[in-house]
Design a protein around this nucleic acid. Structure first.
Lengths: 220, 220
DNA sequence: GAGTGTGAATTTCTTCACAGCT
DNA sequence: AGCTGTGAAGAAATTCACACTC
């Protein structure tokens, strides 16, 4: 129980955390893996197994104390403190990121924004000062920033990732539609709406095929 | 070779498509699974296996003809036509979506936007007319829309998803930080920057632990 | 009775390795 | 010689099922 945690498990933990917050806000005190699973469309066994990587948080016959499990999960995910984050690229997308109110309540502070366009430098956008990219290195060091959000054009993204890694950034949230290559132990998560849509259209097309006359009817 | 395609495979196909486009733009005519894998950080065997679900596209000793493979993948993903899409929720996030130039070149047309706020209704945002949500049903039907982008506040997202499904929407790209529940065969993909950041902090914290004195040193 | 924690069983996904084509 | 396509092997993830606890 102190081996490597599978990536799939790590990917689910934040969802558990969020569901638990919602339950807590709704006044619940205890939740079973069954209940939690229903909310998240995850099997109860999976939830129990995932949590068992980190310890024993439940009580037989009762379920999980929401407050305690929240505390534990918060610590496991490293969210028992605030994380300074920088944004790189203050275009349309970057400005939307700066305006997004969802980061602060979850412990992420966008402490600085950077762009190569001198016209933007010096402005405040949603309360965040825009600086020139040439000032990134010192800023990252001074503020001990380990997380960067990349919202630059696709063609500039890999180069920017390389720079950021060089400056000590260890985690990148990437909005650019490119597959960023970074050396370990740096981590990247990419949010790409077009890729998501393209997977969806595959399924839509599959539906159409099913509507066509099949060789042998009936349900499988 | 006509069984169900695993979701993981479907999730990778759009990435192959994008890499192929990049290669084509760079003037390449042929690519091996090795080359493609290097770009995408996927093993060559995986690429070959994934493609083999759909047919035999390569030539032994040569690799894949980029133009042909692009054609095939485009058709497999249902991207050999344009897809009308509606946006629901014209707040900060929704406006960023409307302004995003990445959808159109990939075959997705945001043909309408909807909001409950009368003050927004009637305006054009990035060239798209904002309508009242009460007009969604007829609009979806008239324009044969099957895909919706949800960018409403978290508390309104599930209700909106229910409505959309009721109106015939079959695929949802969800920007709201909630786990949407939809009946089959409807599909949802959620883009959630906070969940992504929270998975990243887990790894950052893991790095710190590694820096601390370990019981037994050396490399595994 | 209800529900966890977890080895074992099962399923799914990935990689290997090689026959066969160019 | 180079590289695909694919059964078989292997690894990883999920689910089962039940002893155990409250």
């Amino acid at each position: 129980m102190r081996g490597e945690i599978p990536d799939v498990v790590v990917g689910r933990l934040p969802r558990y955390l969020r569901a638990l917050h919602a339950l807590q806000a709704a006044g619940a005190e205890v939740v079973s893996s069954q209940d939690l699973g229903k909310r998240l469309q995850v099997t109860p066994a999976q939830i129990r197994k995932d949590l068992s990587y980190f310890g024993r948080f439940g009580k037989q016959g009762r379920g999980y104390n929401i407050t305690y499990l929240l505390e534990d999960l918060t610590q496991i995910l490293g969210l028992d403190r605030r994380w300074p984050v920088i944004l790189v690229g203050v275009g349309r997308l970057g400005r939307a990121v700066l305006g997004y109110p969802g980061f602060t309540p979850e412990g992420f502070d966008v402490v600085g924004a950077f762009d190569a366009d001198e016209a933007l430098v010096g402005q405040q956008v949603s309360g965040v000062m825009v600086r020139h990219v040439s000032d990134m290195a010192s800023f990252i060091q001074q503020h001990s920033v380990r997380i960067a959000i990349v919202a630059v054009p696709a063609r500039a993204a890999q180069g920017m990732a390389d720079r950021l890694v060089g400056y000590g950034i260890q985690a990148i949230l990437n909005y650019a539609p490119v597959n960023l290559q970074v050396p370990p132990p740096v981590r990247v998560r990419t949010l790409d709406p077009v890729l998501a849509l393209e997977a969806l259209t595959f399924y839509l097309q599959t539906l159409e095929r099913q509507r066509e006359p099949a060789p042998s009817g009936g349900r499988g």
